[in-house]
């Protein structure tokens, strides 16, 4: 660095010192983009609150067998329709099954459905979007047409249609949700790729002799993922709600499986006598959805380069 001549000694030295400090701070930030990102997230109240709920939810699912005081499918005729008490935290249903235990195990189903379905749809959508955006032309036309068709149906309706074809059960719910919700990722990734394709570093990769696959996956995809990850975070609660809805309608998990939708459904005829059967799974769905949404929104704010 060429040091400019000082015209006014003292002031100049002070300015230089300030500049130096600013430079160091900037370098520090630049060197640890991830640490900076985490620090920003921690300052965001919504993110922390959401993260706590998500963490509790995940731990519940993972440690369900330790947390649940009873077995989720074991009837107990001596304790039918008990209101919430110290013994049965969330009460019992008409077979005397402990609602708390069922909800704890139900977290497993919700978690699995959410992550696997979102994972599959993310992969489908990202790959199709990447191909459409990178190649353009006929490939883009075909993929965009299919995406637009998929996009024009409400996700839940489309999922029901797939269930009708595949049959009920948790596995099929996962497949149905995945097949019904990839269109959003496809559109986002395609848009990202359309703009990335014109970026000079991508053109540079092309003339440096790199294969299409390498350019797409090594160079473009890592630069296109931020909005996809935000989107996936916001898709997780949607998947949980769709799974619960399908199970509520009898199209998803089947009794006695403890899906939250199934529990909710089992209490709907007993709302006047035993409202706790439907209340607690409903509350859980709401809390988890809230947690994911708060976290997803926070993630979007933090990853937004204009913030």
């Amino acid at each position: 660095m060429i040091a400019p001549q000082s015209r006014n000694g003292g002031v100049y030295i002070e300015n230089e010192w300030i500049e130096q400090q600013a430079l160091e701070v900037r370098e520090e930030k630049a060197r640890k983009p991830f640490a900076d990102f985490v620090a920003k997230l921690f300052k965001h109240k919504g993110a922390v609150f959401g993260a706590v709920i998500i963490l509790l939810f995940v731990c519940t699912a993972v440690f369900a067998s330790w947390l649940a005081p009873y077995e989720y499918d074991k009837p107990d005729i001596s304790a039918v329709l008990q209101p919430p008490s110290a013994e049965h935290l969330f009460g019992t249903d008409e077979f005397g099954r402990d609602i708390f235990s069922r909800i704890v195990y139900g977290a497993r189903i919700s978690l699995r459905v959410a992550f696997v379905a979102v994972g599959i749809s993310l992969v489908i959508g990202t790959v199709l979007g990447a191909l459409a955006g990178y190649y353009g032309g006929v490939v883009d036309y075909i993929i965009t047409s299919i995406t637009d068709i998929a996009w024009s149906f409400p996700t839940t309706l489309l999922a029901i249609a797939f269930i009708a074809a595949l049959g009920t059960g948790v596995e099929n719910v996962i497949i149905a949700i995945a097949l019904a919700s990839w269109a959003g990722y496809c559109r986002v990734v395609r848009g990202q790729f359309l703009s990335l394709r014109e970026r000079e570093f991508v053109q540079a990769a092309r003339i440096l002799g790199m294969s299409d696959a390498r350019i797409i996956f090594r160079h473009m995809l890592p630069n296109a993922l931020a909005p996809v990850i935000v989107m996936a975070t916001l898709e997780l609660p949607k998947a949980i709600v769709i799974e619960a809805s399908l199970s509520f309608l009898g199209l998803g998990a089947q009794p006695p499986e403890p899906s939250w939708g199934v529990i909710l459904d089992s209490g709907k005829g007993l709302l006047d006598q035993a409202p706790w059967i439907s209340f607690f799974p409903g509350l859980m769905i709401m809390l988890v959805v809230l947690g994911f949404n708060l976290f997803g929104d926070a993630l979007r704010d933090v990853l937004d380069p204009n913030s």
């Binding site: 970026r199 000079e200 570093f201 053109q203 540079a204 990769a205 160079h219 890592p222 630069n223």
Partner: peptide, 11 residues
């Protein structure tokens, strides 16, 4: 390329 900021992959 003209712009050395744009012609390197930022990641």
């Amino acid at each position: 390329f003209q712009d050395p900021f744009a012609s390197l992959n930022p990641r």
